[in-house]
Amino acid sequence: MTAAAPTPSLAPVSRRSPVLVQLGGLYGLWLREVKRAVRDRGQLVGGFSRPILWVLILGIGLNPYFRGEVYGEVTFVVPFTYLQFIFPAVVALNIMYTSVQSAISVIWDREFGFLREVLVSPLSRSTVLLGKVLGGATVAMAHGSLVLVLARFADVPLTWGTVAKALGVMAMLALALTSLGIVIANRIRSFEGFGVFSNAVILPLYFTSSSIFPLDPALTRAQTRVVYPDWLVTLVEYNPLTYAVDTLRGVLIHYNQFDPRLGLLIMAVAGIVLFTIALLDFRRA
């Protein structure tokens, strides 16, 4: 057997501190998610076309009907147009789609073996999961920001301050939703398509979150239940997304149906709880 001296560059790596290793790995995994998303045509097309359909077509189309006086009698008096009203919700919708889509890729990582490569690395499980969540949330925020570009068409004036605050709320929403997606994906053994997700999770959450119609602010709680059927009001009130959208709406068009801090609290708690569940699942697997 040849006992040739190892080539110099093959000499042992200078020991990096464990914290640096975890941070470097986190960066690598985050970068991977972002690169994959940028190269994913289908996802990009969805990210562009969804807000255009919702804001420009649906929003502009329904805008006139939103005013009470259309029927000759003022029923609702609201300080904003329909376009302005759904605009924050479309931001949330784009974030929701993209977050869940990114999270679904854990199924592919598992089935196509990439996950193994990471599991035999020196990275801890929490670093691996955090890399996935941060990467997915970053992409989701980027898709949410695409909607902000349409702000001028929706008569939503944006200042830098508003944008900064909105991005903060969007980040919280994206983190919570990506964690939710991962928790769901971990429970799926066989996967046939994303359509199931969008029909079973995303759209129901979206439609019952007071996203596309307001619970009238001028009415009392009791009156609301007269105008709308009981079950719908209950659904809307129990849907956590309602409060997240409401907080974002407060930032973007200064209109809140609930206390805006409630939305922040719900997103923070949901994010932490879901991430923890995902981590426990991952450790057990």
Binding site: V13, S14, R16, L20, V21, G24, G25, Y27, G28, L29, L31, R32, K35, E117, V118, S121, P122, L123
Partner: peptide
């Protein structure tokens, strides 16, 4: 990129 990711994940400077 695959190789680079591996290096990052294993903490190779």
């Amino acid at each position: 990129e695959n190789l680079d990711l591996h290096g990052l994940v294993f903490g190779v400077p």
